[in-house]
C-alpha cells in the first residue's frame, strides 16, 4: 500500500509542480497517471523515490515514511522501486548486460561493484531478465546499438534486476511508435500480473490507459482532478483533465 498525503513540491525559483496531492495505491495495482505535459506527472513519480525531494507532505509505503528516510534508508527503499524512463536513460557506451546489472547496484557491496565485479548469481539473473524481455542475444552489444524499443526493454530488465515491489514508469512509451508502445506496455502488464508488482505509469494516450490501467489519477497544474476507473473518463471529464479546448482523437 502506497499512501500519498498532501504532497506539495515547489521548485527553486517558485514553480509550483504539485499542490496538495493525496491518493492511495493498493499493492499490485496498475495505476495510470495522466495529464498534460507539465502537469506534474514526472515530479510526482520522482517524489515517490525521492529523486526529487518534496517540499511538504508525506509518502508512506507499507507503513514506512519515505519522506523522512535518511540517505542510507533511502538507498534501501529505492532498490525495491524500479524505474523506467521516457528516454530509457541507458548508459550508451556500456554493454547491455552492464546496464542491466546496474539495477543490482543497490544490493552489491560498493567496494566490489567499483571494480565492475558482480556475483555470479547476479550475472545469471541479468541474462534471465533479458530473456524475459526477449533480447538475451543483445547482451554483449553496446546499448546505443539497439533500437528504441529494445532500449526500453533493457530499461525494464534493469528495473526487474532490483526485485522490485513497485515500478515507476515515467511515460515509458512516449518516444516509441504505437506497435512498440503496446509491446512495452504488455511487458509492464505481465510484470504487474505475474509478479504482483505495483505499477505507477504516466501515459499520454487514453487508449493505452483504457487497455492496461486498473485505475487512473489525472493531474492538472499539479492538482488531482480525477481519480477512478478508466471507463469513467467521459467527454466532460476529458475536458476537465486536458482543458476546454482539447479534442479527443483516436
Amino acid at each position: 500500500m502506497l499512501q500519498i498525503k498532501n504532497l506539495t513540491k515547489v521548485y527553486e525559483g517558485g514553480v509550483q509542480a504539485l499542490t496538495d496531492v493525496s491518493f492511495e495505491v493498493p499493492e499490485g495495482q496498475f495505476l495510470a497517471v495522466i495529464g498534460l505535459s507539465g502537469s506534474g506527472k514526472s515530479t510526482l513519480l520522482r517524489c515517490i523515490n525521492r529523486l526529487v525531494d518534496p517540499t511538504s507532505g508525506q509518502i508512506l509505503w507499507n507503513g514506512e515514511d519515505i519522506t523522512a528516510a535518511t540517505p542510507d534508508e533511502m538507498r534501501r527503499i529505492r532498490r525495491r522501486i524500479g524505474m523506467v524512463f521516457q528516454h530509457f536513460n541507458l548508459v550508451h557506451r556500456s554493454k547491455v548486460i552492464t546496464n542491466v546489472l546496474a539495477g543490482r547496484l543497490g544490493y552489491t557491496n560498493p567496494a566490489w561493484s567499483l571494480m565492475n565485479r558482480f556475483p555470479k548469481e547476479d550475472v545469471d539473473k541479468a541474462i534471465q531478465q533479458l530473456e524475459r524481455v526477449g533480447i538475451a542475444d543483445k547482451a554483449e552489444n553496446r546499448a546505443d546499438e539497439l533500437s528504441g524499443g529494445q532500449q526500453q526493454r533493457v530499461g525494464i530488465a534493469r528495473a526487474l534486476m532490483q526485485d522490485p515491489q513497485m515500478i515507476l514508469a515515467d511515460e515509458p512509451v512516449a518516444s516509441l511508435d504505437p506497435v512498440l508502445a503496446h509491446s512495452i506496455m504488455k511487458h509492464l502488464e505481465e510484470i504487474n500480473k505475474t509478479d504482483k508488482v505495483t505499477v505507477l505509469c504516466s501515459l499520454h494516450f487514453l487508449d493505452l490507459v483504457h487497455r492496461y490501467a486498473d485505475r487512473v489519477i489525472a493531474l492538472n497544474e499539479g492538482r488531482v482532478v480525477f481519480e477512478g476507473s478508466p471507463k469513467e473518463i467521459d467527454d466532460k471529464k476529458f475536458k476537465d483533465i486536458y482543458g476546454r479546448d482539447a479534442e479527443r482523437v483516436g
Partner: peptide, 17 residues
C-alpha cells in the same frame, strides 16, 4: 538519474553512470 534510482550510492553512480 537512472542509476541513482536503483539505490546505488554516490560512488557507484559515478562509476556506472
Amino acid at each position: 538519474e537512472a542509476i541513482e534510482a536503483t539505490g546505488a550510492n554516490r560512488l557507484q553512480t559515478i562509476i556506472y553512470g
